[in-house]
Design a protein around this nucleic acid. Structure first.
Lengths: 335, 335
DNA sequence: TTGAAAGCGGTACCAG
DNA sequence: CTGGTACCGCTTTCAA
């Protein structure tokens, strides 16, 4: 079933059918109705491949998601889809594997889908600045900071990870904790992990405390299981710690569970603080102390910036959106 | 940058470049090398739109995911992608909104992407049997039961929801609970919710107990928040219940948290049992009693069945995979 | 082994 | 307002 078949059945030319299906105004009402009737009858839909092959620009905004596993990404995605709905653009979501290069993928998608803009969710963009720099269209990174990538039409909206982490650390210090362990991702690069670590360290330094990376830092992936394992290692290398700063809620919860299994109750014996503010954090027992990232705001701002770049040719922009500290029930005051 | 540009630069015809890029054997080694060099130099990639427009069949298996929000779906998706990697097929993932018709979408994708098979994750297929019936290629539903859809090349792999729910109910009964509330989705249709409800009821009936739907059933969506709200309603309509059967772990956790806030401790005051066996269930406090669905097995079996249909023209097949009951810490024995 | 050319299903321009 | 037609980038058949 092609546009040709429809045209034949309507007794008109393919061009006419195309015009009807694309809502062009220059078609007589009579013809339009006839065509629509036949189209409906067959449930006909235009072949997107042919359409894109021809098109110079589609009204599509591409959303590139890297790693579906994160709860955060899912809520961002949901919000973006909802916000795009009433707009003249349509969203196309592409899910990338954890390990493939999002900028390369973006370049390919550009030439194929011809989107008017791209939204990046997740991933760690420092890996491939060059590929990012090559992108010829408006892009926005959501939840990753892009301040460091230059020479592109690349914006970003994110939480101020440095300040937020520093805020959490200050809270722990204020509650009388000085022996603090950290559970986080791999350091290095300009990723989120490093920013959070820097913020944490800055607070400790300001308070005149040293941080012994070797005994007080445990590396963990983004999973309950890994968070739990990291907690075990931490308790071994740093048995007298009184608080743990985890770089995600998921790690924090893995840690809390493991601590409980080791007979250490949170917050009575050990305090734990998370990061992200996922819904679960307020449904866990105990409720997690954490940094709530306003995912809806992140998504909205990201979209706004992108639309500004697309429609008004606005320059790239790197924006922080405010975070909220939730004190929860997982930190005990030693003072 | 098109195949024409490459051809010009190589001093050969487009057909030759195409043959090289598709690994056809009938190209001289010399020509092949020259073409590949130029291709590499420009990082050239074929335009997928043009390719698909032309192609009769792609070696693509389409994965249609409905509703990203579910943790279960994400782990299924991950597993499927991993398993497909070494195969001759490539996976293409399409994420659908909660509310659009997956069978219609599948029909469109069929004519556009020309996949060799489709995997459906999530959604409730009873809505549109006709559209499913129209699908002209091997399909498999994972985690949904498709026993009832006829006249299609439609297979399914799922947990035996009826038996599993019945098993949970029996467990509660054996622990001395007779006043049991239920938190679940909308009933009706042949969806998972109804199957679980039927299984639950069957056990109660077998034990000679009546179930008062009006006071003992609270409807909830798949979220912590809704599970919590449902728990509130349930405690109001059925204050003296001693156990709650929740149709998902997420609902169960929402309920447990709300019960705690109402001063009812789980399992001391109220017992709660979940369903799904998501990773969180064993990291929550208390650990959840639940039905563990073997997601990896679900994914593997689904893929196997699909491949059998594609490659050996095997008939559709509806398969249950075994589940595991986890007793956890959220149910108290009254006996 | 290679080149030339006919489509795949649309869109958009040009004439009428 | 409508029909005819040249392309979009690629694959594949047919000849050379």
């Amino acid at each position: 079933m092609t546009i040709k078949d429809i045209a034949r059945e309507c007794g008109c030319a393919v061009g006419t059918v195309s015009r009807v299906l694309n809502n062009h105004p220059d078609v007589s009402e009579k013809t339009r109705e006839k065509v629509l009737a036949v189209v409906k009858k067959h449930d006909f839909i235009l072949n997107a491949n042919a359409k894109l092959l021809k098109a110079q620009d589609s009204k599509t905004i591409e959303v590139l998601v890297k790693g579906t596993s994160s709860i955060l990404l899912n809520s961002l995605l949901e919000r973006i889809q909802k916000r795009m709905e009433p707009l003249q653009y349509n969203a196309s979501v592409v899910v990338l594997d954890e390990y493939d290069n999002e900028a390369k993928a973006a370049n390919r998608i550009c030439s194929e889908q011809k989107p008017v803009g791209i939204i990046f969710l997740g991933g760690s963009p420092d890996l491939c600045k060059d590929d990012f720099a090559r992108l010829p269209l408006p892009c926005v990174l959501i939840s990753n900071e892009a301040q460091f990538i230059e020479g592109t039409r690349l914006s970003s909206v994110s939480t101020d990870n440095f300040t937020a982490a520093s805020h959490s650390a200050d809270y722990l210090l204020r509650m009388g904790h000085t022996k603090i362990g950290v559970i986080g991702g791999d350091l290095g690069g300009s990723g989120i992990t490093q920013r959070r670590y820097d913020g944490f360290l800055a607070s400790l330094t300001r308070a005149g405390l040293a941080f012994d990376y070797g005994k007080a830092y445990a590396t963990s992936k983004y999973s309950f299981e890994d968070g739990a394992a990291a907690a075990s290692r931490l308790m071994e290398s740093y048995p007298d710690l009184t608080a743990i700063f985890a770089m995600s809620d998921v790690m924090a919860i893995g840690a809390i569970r493991r601590l409980a299994d080791m007979g250490r109750k949170v917050p009575d014996d050990v305090s734990v603080i998370g990061f992200d503010g996922i819904p679960l954090s307020s449904y866990y027992q105990p409720r997690l102390a954490t940094i709530r990232q306003e995912t809806d705001l992140l998504a909205d701002e990201g979209l706004n910036i992108l639309l500004n770049m697309i429609e008004r040719n606005a320059p790239p922009q790197n924006k922080f959106i405010p975070f909220e500290f939730i004190s929860g029930e997982s930190v005990r005051c030693l003072a």
